[in-house]
């Protein structure tokens, strides 16, 4: 039975697209069929972060408007066979994203894949609402920073009221993904602590992604960080978060750089 996940936050720039790509790749690496769907109509970027930008032919809106079949718009990842991306449209107007159209595409995706991961646009407007509407699970991406926490709180409110699940009297499963976390600064009292954020938002913690230069490197290269540097702290944090999504009970820790300088030098040569 397919699971539909929305990666959302309210605030922009907190790491939704990075997280969508990294979690999608991590889940697909276990052999499951995964599709990552870009809902940011007008400003698509998931294709770029995934390194598929040169291969986009058709997009979500083309499928909704009947100009292309879903199978024609799906781009298969060149590194992981079980990973696909459905790009957002770049130029068309946002009203082209209709509720019925999205519902039909989501139903088709549910049949084809084990995981459907929807990368929400920032904000709380229609695009964000449509991205979350069909979700069974929501990953709320939050930075340990006041405005991000506040926006996450609003998004959590929306998840509990305006989604299909909520309207049917059910509950969408919510998970907190704390990104760009800097343990040293938190220890010095310069950054909101994990416990503070958890207490304020009171949803279960899916993972803590440490601030890392590997994330920028991954986006430069057009590869999910879980593929570009699988041993790096953020990649390990995402991989563990993916295992939690699959139901594994793992204690949440903040991964740290594993090896000393020498070990890394030797590894780099092998």
């Amino acid at each position: 039975m397919a699971k539909v996940l929305v990666v959302t936050s309210g605030k922009g720039g907190v790491g939704k697209t990075t997280s969508t790509a990294a979690l999608g790749a991590a889940l697909a690496q276990t052999g499951q069929n995964v599709v990552v769907v870009d809902f940011d109509v007008g400003l698509r970027n998931l294709d770029l972060v995934m390194g598929a930008e040169r291969r986009v032919v058709f997009d979500l809106i083309n499928v909704i408007q009947g100009d292309a079949k879903l199978s024609q718009a799906l781009i298969r990842d060149k590194r992981i066979e079980t990973l696909s991306i459905l790009p957002a449209s770049q130029t068309r107007d946002k009203d082209a994203l209709t509720a019925e159209g999205v519902a039909s595409v989501m139903a088709q995706l549910r049949e084809k894949f084990d995981w459907v991961i929807c990368d929400s646009p920032a904000g709380i407007e229609r695009g964000a609402q449509l991205a979350m509407y069909h979700a069974d699970h929501a990953i709320v991406v939050t930075n340990p920073e006041v405005s991000s926490v506040r926006d996450s709180d609003r998004i959590i409110g929306m998840l509990d009221s305006t989604t299909e699940k909520a309207k049917g009297g059910g509950k969408i499963e919510k998970h907190l993904l704390l990104t760009r976390y800097d343990p040293a600064r938190a220890a010095r009292g310069e950054m909101l602590r994990i416990e503070d954020v958890l207490e304020i938002l009171s949803i279960p913690l899916l993972g803590i992604i440490p601030e890392s230069e590997e994330v920028l490197r991954a986006s430069n290269l057009g590869a999910p960080v879980t593929l570009s540097s699988p041993d790096s702290p953020p990649a390990r944090a995402y991989a563990e978060a993916a295992r939690r999504l699959e139901g594994e009970k793992l204690e949440v820790t903040v991964p740290v750089e594993r090896k000393g300088l020498l070990a890394r030098l030797f590894k780099g040569k092998s």
Binding site: L48, G51, E53, R54, V57, F58, D59, N62, D67, A68, Q90, T91, L216, R217, S219, N220, L221, G222
Partner: peptide
Amino acid sequence: TSAPVARDRLQILLAHERTGNGNESDLLN
């Protein structure tokens, strides 16, 4: 040194997007 890769990728992408990519999918259609 991943930045040069990023620059090259962006240059190729933007060159296509700036020259009326809106018509590209129409042409392909």
